[in-house]
Design a binder for these strands. Structure first.
Lengths: 212, 212
DNA sequence: AGGTTTATGCCACTCAGTGGCATAAGCTCC
DNA sequence: GGAGCTTATGCCACTGAGTGGCATAAACCT
């Protein structure tokens, strides 16, 4: 769980901040995984990183937040891509899929996947972390809707389809993540990409699926 | 915001418990709405209902929980119906829609809708309540999957479609709820039913929708 | 009425999260 | 290579959610 070397030429102060941030994230994931989320107090964590609790809260909004950072990076990239990527016409769901895959592709090849894995496994056994993650998804979804409205002229607020499509994307993402995080063997970012493709591909079938 | 009269012939003790429960829920919704969720302390609330804080936590798991009770009743009914209703063959999504509508139909015609309305509007401006609600949906969804597996022989754990279909149902529900809760004019349970139908109807279109 | 069960109240405690203010570390410009 | 500014950090005291333990009281059951 090594501290990421800050990317070269930043002012010293910024480099230090990055280092503390990374240290907090990694130590948190480590302690939460070993002793459980509730079994780790912020005082423990802060002591381990040699930082005051006051400082912790200048970096993160909550105890849950620190463990969610890697996943939040992905969604931030997603919103960013949605805002800036050249729009390809066609099915909205395909656009969303491509944008998410592009965002995923921008995540650091080194270390990111491992952290997200820990995050997910933690969330699965820590209700408050799960709740926090879901809330974050919800916020992101709303942000995405705003962008879609602006960039694609989907201005009718009573057209439910954009929102539904986004929620499907999120559903596919969660499916993929869960399959990926609880499968035995090594995990990689590419593996997640593949599962994400599968999940998206399963969407049409899930609408028409019949039973009994 | 009147206290619901306990349904006739229960032992006195049980009737009292029901009353305190209702009083806590209604007073909480009232105070949270007036003074905000964060602007109301549990001590305030408990003082208003004349109950000790210790007792509060014997009825509800958290401050958020008390304001979510009416919505949770709906989902409890949904799971119950999913477990017990005679299964009609056909599209899974239709089955889910019918089950949810049936559950909705079982909610008290009197007072329930008003409470859910307050709950939703509160959740919209209180992140921790929103998070709590989403987490509850997630738990319910997982419960529903288990039931689907048992009752409809959907045993393949790698078939993502049931989970996706359930998430679509939840998405439709959230859409409907939001439209319903933020629309001007009076609100009724039947109105919610109608909007729920609309939201479900929009699902196929949201999968195929194209842009730009 | 008398004994059992079960809900409630009270008290002391832990821990997440916040506000305010003093200090120290990094930055900037002469 | 300091003087002076800016910004991050530390410290302290505080609020409020949530919990455990134990004593009391209310409802239940002959």
């Amino acid at each position: 769980m090594s501290i990421v070397t800050p990317p070269a030429r930043l002012p010293l102060r910024e480099r230090k901040k990055l280092r503390t941030r990374e240290a907090l994230i990694d130590t948190a994931l480590e302690h939460f995984t070993d002793r459980g989320f509730d079994g780790t107090t912020l005082d423990d964590l802060c002591a381990a990183v040699e930082v005051s609790k006051r400082t912790f809260f200048r970096y993160f909004d909550s105890k849950e937040d620190v463990a969610m950072a890697p996943t939040q990076d992905l969604w931030a990239a997603f919103l960013d891509d949605l805002q800036t990527r050249r729009p390809t016409g066609g099915p909205l769901l395909t656009l969303l899929q491509d944008t998410l895959l592009a965002a995923l592709d921008r995540m650091p090849a080194e270390g990111w996947a491992e952290r997200v894995l820990l995050t997910r496994r933690l969330a699965a056994r820590t209700p408050s972390m799960n709740a926090h993650g879901l809330q974050f998804c919800d916020r992101t979804t709303r942000g995405a809707i705003t962008i879609l409205r602006e960039r694609f002229g989907l201005t009718d607020p009573h057209d439910l389809r954009p929102r539904l499509a986004l929620d499907m994307m999120v559903a596919a993402f969660h499916c993929a993540l869960e399959e990926w995080a609880f499968q035995p063997g090594p995990v990689s970012r590419d593996d997640l990409t593949a599962r994400l493709r599968d999940a998206f591909a399963a969407i049409p079938g899930s609408v028409t699926m019949t039973v009994a």
